[in-house]
């Protein structure tokens, strides 16, 4: 249009402001970001990356108490491991452990969060107490559960006998399923506070009027949970599942303190297996190999977790 053209011809030029930054508005921000990251990067390299690379290297060597120097054997360790039924057993044990701990931590954490999200007297005190397992060292928790399950003076035996479920004290931890149940319970107990906190934060951002509208529409508790609360918490649940799986795959202290991986190998998850190979049998090469496989199983959930985090950051 002619008017536009004439305006373009009139376009004025402006002198630069003395306050202008040379590289544009965002200049220098990138450098600052790297500087902030530097300490974390150095710590990560020293504490995480370098041992991992070393372990990766060691997994290619035969390095036991009978070999004064590590002997390079290529992928022989991996071959041997994959053929080893005890290691495969360890993977199965780990899978069982991770499944039950993750499942119960999440369902119980969610249930507890929903209860603590309702307004009632003493709610804040109860919220505080609920964080206790989180603050306590895991070994202390394991110790408490050891006492609960103890075959002679355990709380569980006392209660079960009191109610007449059993006639004689049972050695709970000396059966395969009993030991597994115990280590799962400890881990669930340890995990609930963190998961509950995640869910409480998610519930806090829930629109109260949305639930009221649903009630007016005729939704009962079940439908409120299924149609409104769970969809709202979906992103949180996703993060918590992945985070829980990673944490449970790595769990060591509470298991080792309670059962030491026993009876026999019943609770010998990968972390315990690595520890046993390395520090009981002094087979460092094999321990490193198991470690590498173990990391490989953690990587997929970790990847999903990070991707979810990135999505949230956008």
């Amino acid at each position: 249009m002619p008017t536009d053209l004439s305006q373009a011809a009139d376009a004025r030029t402006f002198r630069p402001s003395p306050h202008a930054k040379r590289g544009g508005l965002r200049a220098g921000q990138g450098r600052f970001g790297v500087m902030l990251l530097l300490p974390a990067l150095i710590a990560f390299s020293l504490i995480v990356l370098s041992p991992f690379v070393q372990a990766l290297g060691l997994s290619l060597y035969k390095y036991t108490i009978s070999t004064p120097e590590p002997i390079f054997v290529g992928l022989a360790n991996f071959k041997k491991l994959l053929a080893d039924p005890t290691v495969r057993g360890s993977f199965v044990t780990t899978a069982v452990y991770v499944f039950f701990t993750t499942f119960f931590s999440i369902t119980l954490g969610l249930a507890w969060a929903i209860i603590l999200n309702e307004p009632f007297k003493g709610r804040n005190a109860l919220r505080g107490i609920s964080l206790l397992p989180w603050i306590m060292p895991a070994t202390v928790s394991a110790f408490i559960f050891g006492w609960i399950f103890n075959s002679r003076y355990g709380v569980l035996n006392a209660v079960a006998m009191e109610f007449g479920f059993i006639e004689h004290p049972q050695a709970w931890l000396s059966t395969t399923s009993g030991a597994m149940t115990a280590i799962v319970m400890v881990k669930v107990w340890l995990s609930i506070p963190l998961f509950m906190s995640f869910f409480l934060a998610g519930l806090a951002s829930m629109d109260r009027e949305q639930i009221e509208a649903a009630r007016v529409d005729g939704a009962g508790n079940y439908n409120v949970l299924k149609d409104h609360i769970l969809p709202h918490l979906r992103p949180v649940i996703l993060v918590v599942v992945v985070l829980g799986m990673i944490g449970n795959l790595q769990q060591f202290d509470s298991i080792y303190a309670l059962t030491g991986g026993g009876p026999v190998r019943a609770t010998s998850v990968l972390s315990v297996e690595v520890y046993r190979r390395a520090f009981e049998q002094w087979d460092i090469g094999m321990a490193a190999t198991i470690g590498v496989l173990w990391v490989a199983t953690i990587l997929p959930p970790a990847y999903f977790y990070l991707r979810q985090l990135m999505k949230g950051a956008e």
Binding site: V216, A219, H228, H232
Partner: peptide, 21 residues
Amino acid sequence: VPPSKRGIAMVFQSYALYPHM
């Protein structure tokens, strides 16, 4: 009598639509 049984419908100030539907 609970809200859903009163034969009423309410439009909320925030609309309170169900975001996932």
